[in-house]
Amino acid sequence: MNIQQLEFIIRSTFTNLDYSFLDQLDKDSYYSDQDKYELINRIEFQIHSLKTAGYNKLLCKQSRCFLCYPNADALSFHCPNTDELVIKYVFQNLGKTEEGEFLYRVEECKNNPIKEGANGLPF
């Protein structure tokens, strides 16, 4: 699995609010120090919380993290009706272990963005 495939799986999961897409994750990789099943459990809980809050789908936009992980890719997910930011994830390929397992950063970004250009700060 490469980083683009990983991003596609996460994008599909959150735009459809369906964690079954996560079954495609590589079971021999680690995602922010979690195995496949730990990541699925974490995201399954988030999907359930989003559905409970009344969302049935989200829009995805390419994004960036300017604070914690400036070299990572990011996807932001927005309410389709209001364009309000709902959740944002960062992704980064961290290489391989000595055993050949891939390591990825897959983390929710909890920083609240500010309007572009405000104080020249990204968050």
Results as ranks from 00 to 15, higher is better:
Asn41His: 14
Glu84Lys: 08
Cys65Trp: 00
Phe102Arg: 13
His48Pro: 00
Phe91Asn: 06
Leu50Ser: 12
Ala53Cys: 01
Ile40Asn: 02
Tyr19Gly: 06
Val86Cys: 10
Asn119Leu: 15
Ala53Tyr: 03
Gly100Tyr: 09
Asp23Asn: 11
Leu75Glu: 09
Glu7Met: 15
Phe123Val: 05
Leu25Thr: 02
Asp73Leu: 09
Ala118Cys: 13
Ala53Gln: 08
Ile10Thr: 07
Lys51Glu: 05
Ala74Phe: 04
Pro113Ala: 02
Lys88Val: 03
Ile114Phe: 10
Lys36Phe: 11
Leu39Trp: 05
Phe77Pro: 06
Ser76Phe: 01
Leu25Cys: 00
Phe66Pro: 00
Glu108Phe: 00
Thr52Val: 10
Phe91Asp: 08
Asn56Met: 07
Thr97Leu: 12
Leu50Gly: 13
Pro122Tyr: 09
Val86Asp: 12
Gly120His: 06
Gly95His: 06
Cys65Val: 00
Ser12Gly: 01
Leu75Ser: 02
Cys60Gly: 06
Tyr69Thr: 05
Lys27Glu: 13
Ser49Tyr: 10
Arg11Ala: 14
Leu39Pro: 03
Gly100Asp: 11
Ser20Pro: 00
Ile114Pro: 01
Asn81Gly: 11
Gly54Phe: 03
His78Gly: 07
Ala53Arg: 02
Asn56Tyr: 10
Glu44His: 14
Glu107Asn: 11
Tyr89Arg: 06
Leu22Glu: 07
Leu25Phe: 08
Phe21Gly: 01
Leu6Ala: 07
Phe66Asp: 00
Leu22Trp: 08
Phe91Ala: 07
Phe91Val: 05
Asp23Met: 00
Leu6Glu: 07
Lys110Cys: 08
Phe91Pro: 05
Lys96Val: 11
Tyr31Glu: 02
Lys96Trp: 10
Lys110Thr: 12
Phe66Lys: 07
Ser49Glu: 13
Lys88Glu: 15
Asn2Pro: 09
Ile114Asn: 12
Lys36Tyr: 10
Pro122Asn: 09
Leu25Glu: 04
Leu17Val: 00
Ile10Gly: 03
Glu38Ser: 15
Ala118Phe: 15
Lys115Gly: 06
Gln46Arg: 15
Ile9Asp: 08
Leu103Ser: 00
Arg105Leu: 15
Glu7Asp: 09
Cys68Asp: 13
Asp83Glu: 12
Tyr37His: 14
Leu58Ser: 02
Gly120Thr: 05
Tyr89His: 10
Phe102Val: 01
Cys68Tyr: 09
Pro122Trp: 00
Ser12Glu: 04
Glu99Ser: 13
Asp18Phe: 09
Asp18Ala: 02
Asn2Cys: 10
Ala118Arg: 15
Ser29Glu: 01
Tyr37Asp: 15
Ala53Ser: 05
Ser32Tyr: 09
Glu38Leu: 14
Gln62Ile: 06
Cys109Asn: 12
Ala74Gln: 13
Ile9Ser: 04
Tyr37Met: 14
Ile9Met: 10
Asn16Asp: 14
Pro80Phe: 12
Ile10Asn: 08
Phe123Pro: 06
Gln62Asn: 14
Ile10Lys: 09
Thr82Val: 10
Asp83Gln: 13
Lys110Gly: 01
Gly117Met: 13
Asn119Glu: 14
Val90Trp: 01
Thr13Phe: 09
Lys51Ile: 03
Arg64Val: 11
Tyr19Pro: 02
Asn93Leu: 07
Ile3Glu: 12
Glu44Phe: 12
Lys36Cys: 08
Ala53Gly: 03
Phe91Trp: 06
Glu84Ala: 05
Pro70Cys: 02
